[in-house]
């Protein structure tokens, strides 16, 4: 009797909704299957238990906005089917966010160089990270082949390794998978779910409201710090410094804002990686870009002209 009740309830609350959702679901137009390399990377993601700390769901609440431009919908997961005979479907939505959400990491952090360094030792790019090092996804060779990807690991994280540090195929697959994680825009005409529990948009009037509405330091931490570091010095051989950078000190902010919005590959010849279009990927508003620009211009000994939001808007409009 009790078993009957339990089984009936199970049917109604789990099995039938699950079947209903999975049958009435189609992948979004514009989404694509994972490539072979990316599928292999997803296998490593599962095997290493990354889901223990990283979610893959942008919830429809305001605080998840930083992880993706829109809340997730069922169709986002429609392409995910059973991994193989032995292993179950892995939507990898997760239940713990010790590390950041990865739903849109392919847009938020498209730099492969950054990912590889981060996997080799997360603390080499984010000093306060508690993520494990995935050193075993890398090889050490004295004389790398030309097609090998060599990592410029800062000396303090080499721990006595003298040869060249090479990304293995697994590491490349994992990074390929991470870079494939992008939120696809909903097709035109389909209503985008809203973010709930947003903060009140109207600023509080009164004497206490003199504080700037956009905190440049916080925005820098969220968007730039992972590569350029908190001290603005970057990482030698990977990410260029902003301290004393001509680009930052230039009174005309046009180049600086263009780099933020469009990315940059001008320093590849000097051994630095390609910068992704951070501003566009993360949907930064002109006010936010101006705040970041001004933070960079006034920190770590940099001292350059203050840029207004209107100026930033003008440059950003011209880039579109």
């Amino acid at each position: 009797m009790a078993l009957l009740l339990f089984v009936t309830l199970t049917l109604f609350v789990a099995i039938m909704p699950a079947l209903d959702v999975q049958n009435n679901n189609a992948p979004l137009p514009g989404s694509r299957r994972l490539s072979r390399l990316e599928t292999e990377g997803k296998g490593i993601f599962i095997a290493e238990g990354c889901v223990a700390c990283h979610t893959q769901q942008v919830r429809n609440i305001d605080m998840d906005k930083i992880f993706g431009p829109r809340p997730g919908v069922a169709a986002d997961y429609a392409r995910i089917t059973r991994t193989d005979v032995w292993r179950n479907t892995a939507t990898l939505m997760g239940s713990e966010r010790t590390g950041p959400d990865l739903t849109n990491i392919g847009n938020r952090q498209p730099s492969a160089d950054w990912h590889l360094l981060h996997l080799f030792n997360p603390r080499s790019v984010v000093s306060v990270s508690v993520m494990p090092s995935y050193e075993w996804l890398f090889q050490v060779k004295e004389y790398p082949f030309p097609e090998d990807i060599v990592l410029n690991v800062p000396d303090e994280f080499k721990k006595g390794i003298t040869g060249k540090i090479i990304a293995s195929k697994q590491a490349l697959a994992l990074v390929a998978y991470l870079r494939s994680l992008k939120q696809i825009p909903l097709p035109d005409g389909r209503q985008v779910p809203v973010f709930l529990y947003g903060k009140d948009k109207t600023p509080v009037a009164g004497p206490g409201a003199t504080k700037p509405q956009f905190d440049g330091a916080a925005l820098y931490a969220a968007n730039c710090q992972a590569c350029h570091q908190e001290n603005g010095k970057g990482l030698p051989g990977a990410f260029p410094p902003l301290v004393g950078s001509e680009l930052v000190l230039n009174p005309d902010p046009e180049v600086q804002i263009t780099v933020i919005m469009k990315g940059y590959n001008g320093l590849v010849s000097k051994g630095y990686g390609i910068m992704p279009a951070v501003g566009t990927n993360n949907n930064l508003k002109p006010e936010e870009v101006a705040a970041i620009v001004n933070h960079e211009r006034s920190s770590w000994g940099n001292n350059s002209r203050h840029v207004t939001a209107a100026e930033a808007k003008k440059i950003m409009d011209s880039l579109k």
């Binding site: 079947l19 997961y77 392409r79 995910i80 179950n88």
Partner: peptide
């Protein structure tokens, strides 16, 4: 009841020919 239910739960959770996409998540919660 506990032993019977566990049998049901493991069967629901592990029977391999369903749970695609979000279906997996609903079953996971259950």
């Amino acid at each position: 009841a506990a032993v019977m239910f566990l049998t049901v739960i493991v069967l629901v959770g592990y029977i391999p020919w369903w749970q695609n996409g979000l279906g997996e998540t609903i079953v996971q919660g259950y």
